[in-house]
Amino acid sequence: MGWLRDWRRRRVLRQSEADAPTWQAACDAQAVLAGLPQADQERLRRLATLFLHEKTFEAAAGLTLTPPMRWRIAAVACLPVLNLGLDWYEGWSAIVVYPGEFMARQDFTDEAGVVHQLRRPLIGEAWERGPVILSWADVLDSETATDGFNVVIHELAHKLDLLNGEANGLPPLHRGMSVRAWADIFTRAYDDFCAHVDAGEDTAIDPYASDSPAEFFAVLSEAFFETPAVLNATYPPVYAQLRAFYRQDPLLRLA
């Protein structure tokens, strides 16, 4: 039924295109979109239009979600799949937006096999086949500077990672990409990064990346789009793998 989906998408694009000022305002608000060529901006606009049509946005804790807010989230959410396509975001439908940090319950099992429940504040979360949850305050903080922090890109990277069934830092790779090469390169970089963090050293990349291979992939995806020169200088082989996966080279437009 791919033809029906494509027909519906073409119909949506004809009927639901953003007016130029709304779309331009959404793009202008995002430092991470600086330098996008006109053709890429137009492709991003089409993806964001479809994203808004196919995903539901839900406001939580009293937040009022306006159309410009939705557009600003959609513009950044579609950047990772700019050259991949919206089908990479299939299997889930909702984005929940809180005004700021929200409390999340997480379960973990200790070495004795006892399951514990923990509640802690988060600014973003991505559930397998469930919603993406975002803090609007941190979405705004992510907009103004390319500092390697972008909660929208981080959580959408988790969604890509989850396409293989679990978040483990290994998303589905394209034909011609080697799983072994990816695993070797990311494992070496992750072990090296964790050693620096464990030694108490300052790192150019957010130390949260040492939490797990899944977080390493998500944080380095943030760095790939926001601070590509830093990532390329720190872990050039990782940058090359992400360039092949995302089919983009932010160094060329953010240099």
Score class of each variant (00 low, 15 high):
Arg5Cys: 11
Pro21Phe: 06
Trp23His: 09
Gln24Asp: 13
Ala34Lys: 07
Leu36Lys: 01
Leu36Asp: 10
Pro37Gly: 00
Ala39Ser: 10
Ala39Arg: 07
Arg43Tyr: 08
Arg45Leu: 09
Leu47Arg: 01
His53Leu: 00
Lys55Ala: 00
Thr56Asp: 05
Thr56Gly: 04
Ala61Leu: 00
Leu63Ala: 05
Pro68Cys: 02
Ala74Glu: 04
Pro80Trp: 02
Asp87Gln: 10
Tyr89Gln: 05
Ser93Phe: 08
Tyr98Val: 08
Phe102Asp: 15
Phe102Pro: 06
Thr109Ala: 01
Gly113His: 09
Val115Asp: 09
Leu122Ser: 12
Gly124Arg: 01
Ala126Thr: 11
Trp127Ile: 11
Pro131Gly: 05
Trp136His: 14
Asp138Glu: 15
Asp138Tyr: 12
Leu140Ala: 09
Thr144Ala: 10
Ile153Ala: 08
Glu155Thr: 02
Ala157His: 06
Lys159Met: 14
Leu162Trp: 01
Asn164Pro: 03
Ala167Pro: 04
Gly169Pro: 04
His174Thr: 03
Arg175Trp: 07
Met177Trp: 00
Trp182Val: 12
Ile185His: 13
Ala189Val: 04
Asp191Gly: 07
Asp191Thr: 09
Cys194Glu: 00
His196Asp: 15
Val197Pro: 12
Ala199Met: 08
Asp206Pro: 11
Ala209Pro: 13
Ala209Lys: 09
Ser212His: 11
Ala214His: 11
Glu215Lys: 06
Ala218Tyr: 08
Glu222Tyr: 09
Pro236Glu: 15
Pro236Leu: 12
Pro237Asn: 08
Pro237Trp: 12
Gln241Pro: 13
Leu242Cys: 11
Ala244Trp: 02
Arg247Ile: 05
